[in-house]
């Protein structure tokens, strides 16, 4: 079996006296698009933050690219970090920078592309997320919620990551934009063998994009399998999430499309 890109081993999280996760195990093989679903407040964002090392789990270990997240020298860690990117739930754009500078920033820091190339790469990323060139000069405060999401995605894609973590990427996007987001991620995934972990409540996105679904409930990963297999699992949360009338309609729509 290929080594997983990302693996969580016996991961537990406690805030104060509140256990959010208890013994989460998850291995994400390369090239998969994994949707992480769970009720609101079930700790999806927290799990994502632990995957990128923003939060240290109370117990357990996170391995990225088959190494502990914090192993090796400073330079080794920097190289490792450059291989994955995260899109935050609220965008987390640099508010003092324009859209252009936000996307150009990681490229400049990497110091590989020339300034002229950076210009073109930024323009390219903007077209990829369907923003107009004229949006480049705007400040984050001047963007709509959906535009913030797309700029955040463009910034996350700037360094061509191999592993992309997305926290509710389609929340706040209109259906057409969600569809083109799905197309973009699928394209990237096919061309670059990108591995994607996305938190989503949007069943259309989930059904269209994910090769696997991980269900986070009762403080652990209840199921991790293909959508069809996960839907067979007999658990109240899963039944409610996938098999309610609304969900059934969305899933049918996605299968028909």
């Amino acid at each position: 079996m290929t080594t997983p890109v990302l693996s969580l081993r016996g991961l537990s999280t406690r805030f104060g006296s509140n256990w959010v996760h208890k013994g989460v195990d998850l291995d994400i093989p390369p090239g998969e698009v994994v949707s992480l679903v769970g009720g609101s407040g079930s700790g999806k964002t927290t799990l994502l933050r632990q995957m990128v090392g923003l939060l240290t789990p109370t117990e357990g270990e996170v391995r990225v690219f088959d190494e502990p997240l914090f192993a090796g020298s400073r330079e080794a860690q920097r190289q490792r970090r450059r291989r994955f990117a995260m899109c935050f739930q609220g965008g987390a754009l640099f508010s003092a920078f324009t859209v252009y500078e936000n996307i150009a920033f990681p490229l400049r820091e990497a110091g590989i592309a020339t300034e002229a190339e950076i210009r073109e790469l930024v323009a390219l990323k903007l077209t990829m997320v369907e923003l107009l060139p004229s949006h480049a000069a705007l400040m984050p405060a001047e963007l709509s919620g959906g535009m913030i999401k797309r700029v955040a995605l463009a910034r996350a894609l700037a360094l061509e990551p191999e592993l992309l973590l997305l926290d509710e990427p389609t929340a706040g996007l209109d259906p057409t934009r969600s569809a083109s987001f799905v197309a973009l991620i699928r394209d990237l995934q096919q061309q670059l063998g990108l591995t994607v972990v996305l938190v989503t409540h949007d069943l259309d996105t989930l059904a269209a994009l994910s090769s696997k679904v991980a269900v986070l409930a009762e403080r652990r990963i209840l199921a991790f399998d293909s959508l069809e297999a996960v839907m067979q699992v007999d658990h109240p949360f899963i039944q409610e999430f996938f098999l309610s009338e609304r969900s059934a309609r969305a899933l049918a729509r996605a299968q028909g499309a």
Partner: peptide, 21 residues
């Protein structure tokens, strides 16, 4: 085949360059 879209995107990007400040 897989690379064609990359260059299509670049062509689209050339149509719409980022305006210089």
């Amino acid at each position: 085949d897989g690379y064609a879209t990359q260059f299509e995107r670049l062509a689209a990007m050339d149509e719409a360059p980022v305006p210089r400040p």
